[in-house]
Amino acid sequence: MPLYNRLKEFRARLGVNQQEMGTLVGTSRQTISQIERGDYSPSVSLALKIAKVCEARVEDIFEYEEES
């Protein structure tokens, strides 16, 4: 999957665990865990919610890399 993210880093800055992060963005702990592991690419709306909670831009947290 060519989508990389720095969610774990931003979450650490906020000082919240996955469960609390999930509650803040209106999703489950499992989804936060899957995003951090790179197993799941979030929808646009979830990515925007995460960016808003982290007070950052979407592209600061999520990075798209072309597959070679």
Binding site: S28, Q30, T31, I35, P42
Partner: peptide, 8 residues
């Protein structure tokens, strides 16, 4: 009760 990742 599942969210988008679990539904996928």
């Amino acid at each position: 009760s599942c969210d988008e990742a679990q539904k996928e």
